[in-house]
Design a protein around this nucleic acid. Structure first.
Lengths: 206, 206
DNA sequence: CACTTTTTTTATTCTCGATGAGAAACCAAG
DNA sequence: CTTGGTTTCTCATCGAGAATAAAAAAAGTG
């Protein structure tokens, strides 16, 4: 049927449509995503979308799924390239960089997914809960390792701290402007904040 | 005319409408905010809104403006109550707590403003840019004072670090669930991350 | 009871998702 | 290079629901 969709053909159109959906989703939010806008970005007539998707929700659903998957994959890949015996805190810094790079330059999908999930109608959010959990699980594991290395302030609740950190990362999509500051600058600041913020640190005794 | 609106009267209805708008805005986003829903929450018939506002956008505009103003005011007030000679880093922690409290429990308006601004149509966002800057300015000043106290890691760009921190705070609105964790817990984690994250710290030398 | 302020009822207009009837593009033989 | 078939997409338009306008009814005030 639709199946594995070997690339060629105009199943590339399909991808254009999904990409466009992510693009609009990222800027307008769930309710603000109009098919007419998606069509315009995808260079397609609006009803053409219905050749590939049977409803607006189905399209958005797929865009989000792709985004969540991509976010997880890119971070996981970056971690896989790091020496496995590196200190957990360094691996966490690598994840921070990968997440930011993905969000800010690599993928509208990932950014759209991350930022839009909270606005989705309950039924749809439910459908992505597992993917979300999978992604967060990667981070959770990292934080747990940091703790086992003794590099996590014992006064911090790991779960809460993680969410606060992920928030800092996710929100960058709202304000970062490639024209006004380098991506590396943001990554550097985020890494420092995370490293020192999580650490029991010199101030630990305090 | 409308003017200063001495309280009493049923210009309290007006406030109910704005409150309702913030309530809906927070949960549904800009495009998802329907006047019928606002009306329902405000206990009013939908067209009644037009007695006070000449369009949907004007209503939303005001709700956002109130929210931005409230966010700034509540943080400023909290700072005003702190001893003026307290170390800047402590004053920053106070601001963190105030911001989180406002966002998460005190004000639908503030939360709606913070979460919705990015989705607003450009023209409207433009109109609030100044208010946003005013709010950020309060934080900028705080961070500058922290730096002057020598409590800011010199390797951190103050502007970038500030945005990363504000992101962490703002994103809490997306995930924090009163049922699943205490507000104090979030505040505590955020304060620790900010204190240690910004500090040159023992780890500064690396 | 006149007169203004506020709110509801009723009607109009607009936007947007969706659909169905085909046109264009590609393709496989004849 | 036709012919017929399949895939891919466009045009025209419908219909629901939402924003707004207009008119009428309540409520409030002197």
């Amino acid at each position: 049927m639709t199946g594995t969709a070997r690339d060629t053909k105009s199943a590339r159109t399909r991808r254009r449509v999904v990409d466009a959906a992510a693009h609009v989703l990222l800027r307008r939010g769930y309710a603000g995503t109009r098919l007419s806008d998606v069509a315009e970005v995808a260079q397609v007539q609006a009803p053409a979308i219905y050749y590939y998707f049977s409803s607006r929700d189905e399209l958005i659903d797929e865009a989000v799924a792709v985004g969540l998957d991509r976010a997880r994959t890119l971070v996981t890949d970056a971690l896989a390239e790091a020496p496995a015996d590196a200190p957990a805190i360094d691996r966490l810094a690598i994840a921070v960089a990968a997440h930011l790079r993905t969000l800010l330059t690599h993928s509208d999908h990932a950014a759209a997914a991350v930022r839009t999930v909270p606005q989705l109608p309950e039924a749809m959010r439910e459908r992505h809960r597992q993917a979300q959990r999978d992604y967060v699980a990667v981070w959770r594991r990292l934080v747990a390792e940091v703790r086992d290395d003794g590099d996590l302030d014992p006064a911090l609740d790991p779960g809460t701290a993680l969410m606060v950190v992920l928030g800092a990362l996710n929100w960058t999509a709202e304000w970062w402007d490639p024209a006004r500051g380098s991506l590396e600058g943001v990554i550097d600041a985020a890494q420092r904040l995370v490293r020192d913020g999580l650490a029991a640190g010199g101030t630990g005794a305090r």
